[in-house]
Design a protein around this nucleic acid. Sequence first.
DNA 1: GTCTATATAGGGATAGAC
DNA 2: GTCTATCCCTATATAGAC
Lengths: 201, 201
Amino acid sequence: MAPRTSSVAAPEGDPTTRDRILDIALELFTEQGYEATSLRQIAERLGYSKAAVYYHFATKDDILLTLHLRLHEFGASAMEAVDEQEWTPQAWADLLDLLIDQLLEQRALFLLQERNRAALEKLHRERHESDHDDLDATFQRILANPKIALGDRVRMACAFGALMGALVFNGNAFADVPSEELGDLLRGVVHDVLDPGPATR
Amino acid sequence: MAPRTSSVAAPEGDPTTRDRILDIALELFTEQGYEATSLRQIAERLGYSKAAVYYHFATKDDILLTLHLRLHEFGASAMEAVDEQEWTPQAWADLLDLLIDQLLEQRALFLLQERNRAALEKLHRERHESDHDDLDATFQRILANPKIALGDRVRMACAFGALMGALVFNGNAFADVPSEELGDLLRGVVHDVLDPGPATR
DNA sequence: GTCTATATAGGGATAGAC
DNA sequence: GTCTATCCCTATATAGAC
């Protein structure tokens, strides 16, 4: 029997065992990958046995799913703000402006996501009820929409990739840069990609 | 005993069994991830038994390593062309210009790399002799170099990420776009990121 | 809430026949 | 060059004692 209703929210007071498991899993899944990380390994770091982990999570998948859902809340709120409009590069820039703050706050979770795409896709297929408007899925839908000019779509994809390039690749080369400073730099890049000056138009 | 000295090059005439294994592995490793793909699965598609795979490759790791080395040849040649200079955004733009063509030709291999970073890092640690100037490693070194202004480094990272955003994320949303057209669009983006107009400077 | 012990399956890898 | 058969290990997951 589960100790409490499955909470997706981040830790508040003293970290519970459940939260500690999630923290450890986040780190190991990101470093080694989901499939390469065993519950034994998690239990070892936790200081308990494997069975203890099973008390808090029914399956290994549930650990990954819980972490995924944590990130999900963010994506959802960003999506609401700019749902289903006419997607112009400018509208996309506005969306990414919002996303940048969340990316900076949730870098670790985005990194997890990015480095475990295969595992998450499988999880998605098997568990995640229907088409729940994932951030990824929404992006893909928009970027495949032939009504938007190809050149615009490519720039939209590039603008998002640019954020990933700075925040998620290269093992956090900019981990020490204050979020505000980095955020400003990134907003500048997004602007230059989506609304380039007349010289390059 | 191996049927021939381990060849890294791409297939030429009729695909040998070895090449077929590599093709199947490339597809499965990319879709499902390296660790989630079993040799049994590869053997099944091949139409042979697991042991047949072991005739061509001593270990599972060797399959991944061979695919990695195939990509490696490209990165190496790109690196030579612009080795160890003073890294300015402009020099970076020149490097990425070269890289774009290779990315377009080798999209599948880059995708494999991108979606199996954890497994490849481990492989690298264990097998790949010392510091062999991987493309990734070189990028990380440069992007962490404090002698280059932070703003420039962020833009350099973003410019590379932009390419990834268009070519590697989003499940190949632009797979149907002719390489030449896509290449031109990407060169435009790289230029706007690394040499933005005066309005945004 | 955490433990030990165990069930069960599947993985990578090897030996040796054909 | 490919197969069958098999080994051994580790993985996830469960049952039930404390």
